[in-house]
Design a protein around this nucleic acid. Structure first.
Length: 477
RNA sequence: GGCGCUAUCGUCUAGGGGUUAGGACGGAAGAUUCUCAAUCUUCAAACCCGGGUUCGAUUCCCGGUAGCGCUACCA
């Protein structure tokens, strides 16, 4: 591969499922590499498995890609629309003697494989069709006999490639089966379509999951048979669940859209995923903008071992991004979530609530539990025993609330004024701050943990605050 | 079964022939405080095992073990 040719990378998902975390990370690495090198990022949909591919999943993948913010420069192209290319490529391979027609039944092949395995050899099928003279094969095909096209893997020697992550990998050809290129129904298999497309699209670097390492020699063989130089391969270690098995639906949220719905920020998601299996030259740096990520990203920094997806750390990172976000912007992102939950909140009010909860939420959706008491007039039922302060009794709670009621009736509703007035009231009554403030907090929020009391009161307003205190006094009678 | 890849705190990782093996999340303790959160300080926590090479291996080599991947007319 000429070092000077412009970088062209691709993400090539198969629409048999939603865009999952592993796929998103692969897409992200490709995107980062393209942006880092000023290259081109191509999206290609590998939908040659007609049984399992659906239009819905294609949409799902596009939606996922847009949400995580990975813009592609070319595509999406669809393999289902490029069948001619694959058939022609398979034809060339037969022509040049690198592939042959196979007339075997599925059962026959399985039988041979099983025998090979019991003999302790590679579970590999040695296909006698390979020795059918071409003329005979053509005749049988012309007579209407169905045939697949298999690649004729060299019987000796080995196939080697240099992986940008793992280094040199060498596999004995004797271990590689004569794999199918074109199914008997004329539909290409993965090995054929990837190579044909990657060649056609002039892909220079293939960055993909490490589950493809073992496939790579097969593809290298196709490149060689086609007389084409192979691209650079860079295999990225896999993402595991907490039980160290490959991340899957069993581990809960697996579609990236689920993360969107939970209130993760795409920028935090990108940051976290980039760190999963890659580290910058200065591994002390963890919170990085897209600009930094792009500037620093390199294939050399990709690690060699699989990584466990750590949701807790993702949440921490997300919280970091939330805290760093300007109030206006955060408020704008929060508002639609609040409204979707059925609360009718004015943007102006949301702006005032946001700074009070910004440090208290990890996910955007947390706004619903952290600030619900701001959104409704009437507080839902709550545990009134919470009104009683830790160091105090019911009588004390009542006294505090009654006094608070007086104070709130007359005091200016700014948090400074409230702070001062309530504090001196507590002092007069000989109550500690907590003994005075906790009952009020519970009365106005319905819970014993909330944003700072005075700021909360300020946003709530006099009318609501008094109403809630009255209610608390009633419940306590 | 065969082949391949990998192996540093619980997790993500840095490092690399001689280091107090560094950072982050999480955990613990403390400070602050009207609660919670945030913040700050401190602490605990790792080189898979066995050989070899070497003056010296966590680092290099070999073997073992374990995990993962591939082993389809799926991708």
């Amino acid at each position: 591969m000429a070092a000077s040719s412009p970088v062209r990378v691709r993400f090539a998902p198969s629409p048999t499922g939603y865009l999952h975390v592993g796929g998103a990370r692969t897409a992200l690495f490709n995107w980062l590499y393209a942006r880092h090198t000023g290259g081109t990022f191509i999206l290609r949909i590998e939908d040659t498995d007609f049984e399992r591919s659906t239009q819905e999943m294609v949409e799902g993948i596009l939606v996922g890609m847009r949400w995580i913010g990975l813009e592609w420069d070319e595509g999406p192209s669809f393999q289902s629309q490029r069948m001619e290319l694959y058939r022609a490529t398979a034809g060339r391979l037969v022509e040049s003697g690198h592939a042959y027609y196979c007339f075997c039944s599925k059962e026959l092949i399985e039988q041979r494989r099983a025998v090979a395995q019991t003999e302790g050899r590679a579970a590999k099928d040695d296909d006698p069709c390979r020795r059918i003279p071409r003329d005979d094969a053509e005749r049988r095909r012309a007579a209407g006999e169905a045939a697949a096209i298999r690649f004729a893997v060299p019987e000796s020697g080995s196939t080697r490639f240099d992986d940008a992550v793992f280094g040199s990998i060498d596999i004995a050809n004797a271990e590689i089966e004569d794999f199918v290129l074109l199914r008997s129904d004329g539909v290409p298999t993965y090995h054929l379509s990837v190579v044909a497309d990657d060649l056609d699209m002039r892909i220079t670097h293939i960055i993909r999951g490490a589950d493809h390492v073992s496939n790579t020699p097969k593809q290298k063989l196709i490149y060689e048979a086609l007389g084409a130089p192979p691209p650079v391969f860079a295999h990225v270690p896999l993402i595991l669940g907490p039980d160290k098995t490959r991340l899957s639906k069993r581990h809960g949220a697996t579609s990236v859209i689920a993360y969107k719905d939970e209130g993760f920020l795409p920028e935090a998601f990108r940051n976290y995923l980039t760190l999963l299996g890659w580290s910058p030259p200065d591994s002390t740096k963890e919170i990085m903008s897209d600009q930094e990520l792009i500037a620093l990203f390199s294939l050399e920094g990709i690690s060699h071992s699989n990584a466990v997806f750590d949701r807790t750390k993702l949440e921490w990172l997300n919280a970091e991004y939330i805290r760093a976000m300007p109030v206006d912007e955060l408020s704008e992102r929060l508002l639609p979530i609040v409204r979707a939950a059925g609360y009718d909140v004015e943007p102006g009010k949301m702006q005032r609530i946001t700074p009070l909860i910004r440090e208290r939420i990890k996910l955007l959706r947390d706004v619903l539990t952290a600030a619900d008491f701001f959104f409704t007039d009437e507080l839902p039922p709550y545990d009134t025993s919470l009104l009683i302060p830790q160091k105090g009794d019911l009588a004390m709670a009542k006294k505090a609330l009654e006094r608070a009621r007086e104070v709130l009736t007359h005091t200016d509703f700014s948090h400074q004024a409230l702070d001062q007035a309530l504090r001196s009231a507590a002092k007069e009554m000989g109550l500690k701050a907590g003994q005075m403030f906790q009952p009020i907090r519970v009365a106005v929020t319905g819970r014993n943990a909330s944003p700072p009391l005075f700021e909360t009161l300020e946003v709530l307003g006099r009318e609501t605050a008094l109403k809630r205190i009255d209610r608390a006094l009633n419940e306590v009678q």
